[in-house]
Nucleic acid binder design. Structure first.
Lengths: 342, 342
DNA sequence: TTGTAGGCGTTATCAT
DNA sequence: ATGATAACGCCTACAA
């Protein structure tokens, strides 16, 4: 497989020669077929097939100043949280013949910025990002370059770009109210790093708000921030359970952390939800599968992806400003949440 | 964000003008910095920063005939099976400043081929694929184009390209022997579609081989093929359990199917492993987290990704033929496998 | 060490 | 309807 190529990659000129037309005509056959008489077109397309020609992407991008490519930067590919939404996003793009370029930032702002610049340099016609919070200078840069950008996973009408997602605060508020209604008074929280993560911040803030509503002492909230991952969730859970007073419920910022917490709970011999309740956020497949099932907040990932794709496509192709959308979430009650043991 | 660009994207020429040098010098500063005297270089790099210049990818690819890009086609992004290995692969590429382009084929050969051609047209310097089985014409095409290609997730010394992975047959054979040693005689199997999937075929064949070794009747193998997914695994499980004789163990082609099976088993009121044992393959995080834990085959995903990256990089940059590697798997015993109830 | 200039494969503008 | 031809932005001999 590493031998030097035995065949030069065929070019437009090769096709033109073989079909006995000019390169311009070949180009038209490929891009605006109706501007070419049928007979000529057939001859050209035959030559294309004979040669196995396919246009050189770089050259095309250079000449046309479009790439039919949209870039996405997500925090991680390693877990299912973004996979389902992104898959739906991609499927919708494919329908329109648009290629998706995916990069991941490992939840690090400076890496995200680097990836964004790479995608821009690669000529992405539009950008799909997660979460609205980032350096204004970056939005500025994208704006000056005229690159349509859309943010998902949050809905924030005040963001500098259209956002398609849900209200993280009100979603978590619903869940926290339910937890408190169940009688919990000492609430442990495992959150992703809040710095630079607007979703994480909103979720924690919502729990505080619910406690405040219920007249609970803010100190009854016991918080651990941690990196993303099952193991991290497990470690954070263990830390929480050693604090005094011990929480009767541990609310996690996402399902992956929650699953880690639940695993460690079992290892430590706790009964869930008898000794301690656990909740998540996202409703990924894991949440259904673990036992007891995880009480969590359901997010319409696929719908979010599909709508984001449609919106971004029209921003790119029609140059319209783009419109944000707010999607609804709902609390999903499963076995992992119950009243605290008296 | 969709306003027309207010600034023309700066080009090499802009940088050159600002730094008072030729475009050639700017290009050298960026690509072969040591061929430029320090003072000039500093001036140029300052201009680069001032202008926020970043090279146009298409133009660079066109002129240099390299893209510093490697393309990967995986069957699916939606589940964790390929995510961990791919993440490791990407991390290694990043270290060398190489960009990864990921596409997914939804387990469909014709889609895979389309994606491969797209990646080639986009100038991928090398290709990373899953599984060795595909149309020889496709290998031929890659060969003629001189595109270094590496296959992972299987190890097959006879494949037309280097393969870095494990021996699916012997891995599953180990597990099947263990299952039979535990006393199981009626074995249900849930496999991904075998057509065009060499991993799936090898795994099923290994179970047959183990039964043969043990002198079991081949008819004691009860097979269901299904699409990929938790729900599909659940449905397949239900179907298997309605057959006569009812299997005492259900061996699944991967962990995702197995988790689906386990979920349905609980819903149907079966005790695992008391009434029926369940096994998986891959050892993704799910396997540890569900309960009982899933007995499965551990695959060194990250190692596979890292090694594949290194091998492919040297194939691309040094033009060496590339060398396959065989990695070891091991059976991981967890609670989901036990002897059949007498 | 640096500059000049040709060419990479397409698209798009003008003619014809 | 089709054909010349000038960009597009960068790299890389080759020359100075």
């Amino acid at each position: 497989m590493t031998a030097p190529p035995t065949e030069r990659t065929p070019t437009l000129a090769d096709v033109a020669r073989r079909a006995g037309v000019s390169t311009a005509t070949v180009s038209r056959c490929l891009n605006t077929p109706d501007r070419v008489i049928e007979e000529t077109r057939n001859r050209v397309l035959q030559a294309v097939r004979d040669l196995g020609y396919s246009p050189n992407f770089g050259a095309r991008a250079l000449a046309a100043k479009r790439t039919n490519t949209i870039g996405a930067v997500i925090p991680t590919m390693e877990n299912a949280i973004f996979a389902r939404g992104l898959q739906a996003f991609q499927e919708e793009l494919r329908l329109k013949g648009i290629t998706l370029l995916v990069a991941s930032s490992s939840y690090r702002a400076e890496l995200e910025e680097e990836q964004i610049r790479t995608l821009v340099a690669r000529g992405a016609d539009g950008l799909f990002l997660i979460g609205a919070h980032r350096d204004p200078a970056l939005y500025d840069f994208l704006n000056r370059r005229g690159i349509p950008t859309l943010v998902a996973w949050v809905h924030d009408p005040n963001a500098p770009v259209p956002t398609i997602g849900f209200d993280n605060h009100s979603a978590m508020l619903d869940l926290a109210r339910r937890v408190i209604a169940d009688g919990h008074r000492h609430i442990g929280v495992i959150s992703a790093e809040q710095a630079g993560n607007d979703r994480a911040r909103a979720r924690v803030a919502a729990i505080r708000a619910a406690m405040d509503e219920a007249g609970l002492d803010p100190d009854a909230l016991s918080l651990v921030e941690t990196a993303y991952g099952i193991d991290e969730g497990a470690a954070a859970f263990e830390a929480l359970m050693q604090r005094t007073p011990r929480p009767t419920v541990v609310m996690c910022g996402n399902d992956v952390l929650a699953v880690g917490a639940m695993g460690r709970a079992k290892e430590m011999g706790y009964d869930v939800p008898g000794d301690v309740s656990i909740t998540g956020f996202d409703d990924i497949e894991l949440a259904k599968v673990c036992s007891p099932g995880l009480t969590t907040v359901h997010v319409p990932h696929r719908q979010m992806g599909t709508r984001a794709a449609r919106a971004l496509i029209s921003m790119v192709s029609e140059g319209t400003p783009g419109q944000g959308q707010r999607l609804d979430t709902r609390v999903v009650l499963r076995g992992s949440l119950g009243p605290p043991r008296a």
